[in-house]
């Protein structure tokens, strides 16, 4: 019975994997914890479901949903760069805006997608087929992003996330790059939302609640698995998908064990919290470790300080008078 449910879990994992790639772009590449996604995933689903209800072809509905997601990212980007609102708050504000917008789009809290008499790209009724199509989607997305982040412009976005100070000094328009990255990210998230609506046969105002935690969990789980194997960018992007699949397999397992799935979001949040804490613990713990025993490390040229000292103030570092 658990194995019967596996194709369903995998296809859900793949859909959320697309969403996780979006989260990867903001959280990992841009270093911007973007909470817009809770709203924009639903926007994608709502736009797609409503358009299909109006008789629009599934592919066109998908494209419009993607554009709607990009616009959501644009709003967050403008809040952050033009209005100077901190990243997390900018995302929360857009999320709240989207709650109303999504309700307005659907006109109700829930909009069905007729998966029987109209053409849908994927549906849970044919999970095996859905898996194949989703794989194609992801291959296309990963390939596209790999190319994009290898261009001059994409490289500028990576630099922006890595060291905005240096980026400005090298003439990179940091605000523009942030906006573009947010738009790409939320476009992908909305794409996931639209596919999800087709797959499950409805869009729901609550479908994005806690999405950021699932996305983060996927990114973190994926990273934990893959980071030791390869640092290739395409592999890292794919790792987010692997993380999402694992997440949904575990989810399915919990259902199979007939445990209370209402706890799942809590567990996800706790897992994410623990994984976020690990680098911090490591650093504090590591420092003491170096102080006590490992002196020779300091003389080497691959100094451990490379990652540690960024927070020190330039002035503070050298006041010895």
């Amino acid at each position: 019975m658990f194995f019967d449910a596996l194709p369903g879990a995998i296809s859900l994992g793949l859909i959320w994997g697309i969403m996780a790639i979006g989260v990867f772009i903001t959280y990992k590449v841009l270093d911007f914890p973007d909470l817009t996604v809770d709203g924009s995933i639903c926007t994608g689903g709502a736009v797609c479901a409503v358009l299909m209800g109006l008789g629009v072809n599934a592919w066109w509905a998908l494209i419009v949903a993607v554009i709607a997601g990009a616009l959501a990212g644009l709003v967050t980007g403008i809040f952050h760069t033009l209005l100077g609102i901190p990243a997390i708050l900018a995302g929360i504000l857009t999320q709240l805006i989207l709650w109303s917008v999504n309700l307005k789009i659907m006109g109700q809290a829930n909009t069905p997608v007729d998966t029987r008499s109209t053409y849908v790209i994927i549906t849970q009724l044919e999970a095996g087929w859905a898996i194949l199509i989703l794989f194609a989607f992801i291959a296309f997305i990963v390939g596209g992003l790999y190319w994009f982040f290898g261009t001059e412009f994409g490289c500028g976005i990576r630099a922006t996330g890595n060291n905005p100070n240096m980026s400005r000094a090298q003439g990179i328009n940091v605000s523009l790059d942030k906006i573009v990255a947010l738009m790409i990210s939320n476009a992908l998230v909305a794409l996931a939302g639209a596919l999800l609506a087709q797959y499950q046969g409805f869009a729901d105002i609550n479908m994005g609640r806690g999405a950021i935690v699932i996305g983060l969990a996927a990114v973190i789980i994926g990273e934990a698995i893959v980071s030791r194997i390869s640092i290739n960018f395409a592999v890292q992007l794919s790792s987010a998908v692997i993380g999402a699949i694992l997440y949904y397999i575990v989810y399915q397992f919990v259902i199979w064990l007939e445990l209370d799935t209402e706890y799942l979001k809590m567990f996800s949040a706790i897992v994410v919290a623990i994984f976020l804490a690990i680098p911090y613990w490591k650093k504090t713990y590591f420092r003491n470790f170096i102080k006590k025993g490992k002196k020779p490390l300091i003389g080497g040229n691959a100094d451990g300080g490379a990652s540690g000292g960024a927070g020190e103030t330039p002035e503070g570092a050298q006041n010895n008078g």
């Binding site: 100070n165 240096m166 000094a169 090298q170 490379a306 960024a310 570092a317």
Partner: peptide, 21 residues
């Protein structure tokens, strides 16, 4: 700032600030 960068070369005091690690 980013437009002026075209004409300016900069090195900061903190070695962490000038490069993307």
């Amino acid at each position: 700032e980013y437009k002026r960068a075209k004409y300016l070369g900069r090195v900061f005091q903190d070695p962490m600030l000038g490069t993307a690690p």
